[in-house]
Amino acid sequence: MIKAEWFYWLVGAVFLVMAAQMLRDGSNPRRYGTAAFWGLLGAGFVYSSWVVSGAAPAEPLGAAVLVMVCLAAFGFTGRGRVRTTTGAERAASAARLGNKLFLPALTIPVVAMVCAVLVKKVHLGGGPLLEEGSETILGLGIGSVVALVIGMAVLGERRISVPLHAGRSMLEAMGWALLLPQLLATLGSIFQASGVGEQVGRITSAVLPDGMIHVAVVVYCVGMALFTIVMGNAFAAFPVMTAAIGWPVLIEAGGGNPAAVLAMGMLAGFCGTLCTPMAANFNIVPAALLELKDQYGPIKAQLPTAGVLLVCDIVLISLFAF
């Protein structure tokens, strides 16, 4: 069976190799801090396997995470000079290779799709070939490796250091944004463990007047969206808001259709996800990947849509759930 942890080791190994490249990169004025950041990240990816299985304590990893935070936050990381092709070289290469360039790029999603849909059902020696529940991320990993092989073949590139250097430049350009989604997931779990959820639920149900079902719909949906903006994740908001308002007020007392209320209640939370830097993997990471000057660019593009959709959601629940 192919395990998800193997794939995390591969990702960790890639980070470690990149860290070694960074250490020797004389063009980076802060190469030691940069190499330490990416080295800790890579080592953390591998060490995490034993934290997840309970075989190793989580505290050293937590300390490493905080060191990474300090390295990035206090300006110890930087980026080296990018050795890349010129615009003219790229245009010439595009003219020569044409649509063959798309082949490796499209390999990643196609292989990911095949793994998630077909390979998922393949069994070998009594167990599934891909670890259950991890088919999608394994597909992404297998797709990337296959795409790299195809890409190097199509382009006639023999040195593995060239794609690694190209990937490293993109990672250095992203910098701290790469770690943010994982750190936010951690914050979400700390919020949950410390009872932030119950507090917010208590405040929202306190502002709710009795017996006005349409007001309660608004409070439920706006509460889902606001709570999601704070937590960065609709999944954390859903149990709290549903236990406080959705189930007792809208469904039990108000007689709402459970499937309609809950399905669209979750989507009200998704409207919140569109507006929050806390959902960094959807909103901040793309800004870094696209090298935007304004890290809130994607959020600004999504904000009006999220507002209108939240109103649509409230109207749809009010009309069809009761």
């Binding site: 995490s48 997840v52 937590g62 770690l179 994982q182």
Partner: peptide, 22 residues
Amino acid sequence: AAFGEGFASSRAVTIFAITLPV
């Protein structure tokens, strides 16, 4: 420990980095 466990269990959001070399 919370920071360590949070990091370990949320690695899936960072794996897109593996697509960057190609």
